[in-house]
Design a protein around this nucleic acid. Structure first.
Lengths: 199, 199
DNA sequence: CCTCGGCTAGCAAGTATTTGCTAGATATAG
DNA sequence: CTATATCTAGCAAATACTTGCTAGCCGAGG
């Protein structure tokens, strides 16, 4: 009564199970046996679909990239683009904490084999690059405060997502996450914008 | 020719070695054998000083707390206090990345036994509480923008430290970390302060 | 001063379990 | 029937932890 699935389908199931395990139970449980149990097969069968654990971590990174980097918009008002990017990240943090913790944890990259650190760093860099491009364009269009240091702002924006991630996890937010997502972003946005002029 | 040390001394050595290993090589290497090698003893000897691995993780948390929470000032200008707190954290990030990654990684808390998550969350909460108290006092003294949402600002400040941590790690900063520490903080500070008035 | 004995850190060599991974047999979908 | 997904069974290495013995430290008695 065993259910047979195509290798391609199983590979995705295995990658998703791995993501779930890492997010929920931590790296220590990221083992072939645990993944197999989650998927509903025996641990040995895992290696009929993947050559070794390293290949699984590669698939995990591919999948994270696929799930998280949902092609940010490249048109329209730069601050609107940034807003939709940030809000989408904040939302993914609130709904799938495991995903985000895969990116914002150097521990993960340690555990993800040799090229793990570089790949995860590259993922983070893509996010930073997008934020930077939005901010630069906004600056050109004179939408930001005159004295704003773009590079610092990039750190602030990307950091905000992380700060939100942990605040939500620690239940340190004074209001429901859905509400706080917008509230935090609006606070940052108003601080970036040139809604106020120098005295 | 074996070097004997007091249990108290060894316990600290073991905790420090564990911190070093976690920070540099990741959770996967956080094992009795690796710690023992780092300290220079056999793995079995570890358990002459600790009952089990869980007790080691407890000691690790104690040590992190001891090293990181260096009694933030409670007097003086609230924004100055906040600045010294943030700069000290940024500096510890730059110099001892392992320490910070122990706090800002939910993976660690997963691996740190049953009470691990709660203890790490409590550490983070202490940081947030300090930031919040500084900001509240600053708001009372009318040092901040009128429309500033304190709770959002807490997320921004704590998140900034994390954003800086990863930017530094990924070498995504356009200037040396020592310089960027102040630059990023000054950017955030000027955005929080009421240096500008509404038009 | 020496020396003797209790205390205990240390090591070597175990334990049972889990790790990643392989080989061969079996069952099932196309 | 063919192809292959799956299971069973097994491996060596690593895991946390234990045990028996060794040997260094330190304080008391002579």
């Amino acid at each position: 009564m065993t259910t047979r699935k195509s290798s391609e389908e199983r590979r995705r199931e295995i990658a998703d199970a791995a993501i779930k395990i890492i997010g929920e139970r931590g790296l220590r449980e990221f083992t072939a046996a645990q993944i197999a149990r989650e998927v509903g097969i025996k641990d040995g069968t895992i290696f009929r679909h993947f050559k070794n654990m390293n290949e699984i971590t590669g698939a995990v990174l591919d999948r994270v990239q696929e799930l998280l980097v949902s092609a940010p918009r490249s048109t329209g008002d730069p601050l609107e683009r940034l807003e939709s990017f940030v809000l989408s990240r904040l939302h993914s943090v609130a709904t799938q904490p495991g995903l985000q913790s895969l990116i914002f944890s150097d521990q993960i990259s340690h555990a993800l084999g040799d090229e793990g650190p570089r790949r995860v760093a590259a993922l983070r860099d893509r996010g930073r690059a997008f934020v930077r491009s939005c901010l630069c364009e906004a600056a050109e269009k004179d939408l930001l405060r005159d004295d704003l240091d773009i590079e610092s702002a990039v750190v602030l924006v990307t950091g905000m997502v992380m700060g939100f991630l942990f605040a939500a996890k620690d239940e340190a937010l004074p209001a429901p996450v859905g509400e706080m997502e917008k509230r935090v972003w609006m606070t940052l946005r108003s601080m970036l914008e040139r809604t106020q002029v120098k005295s």
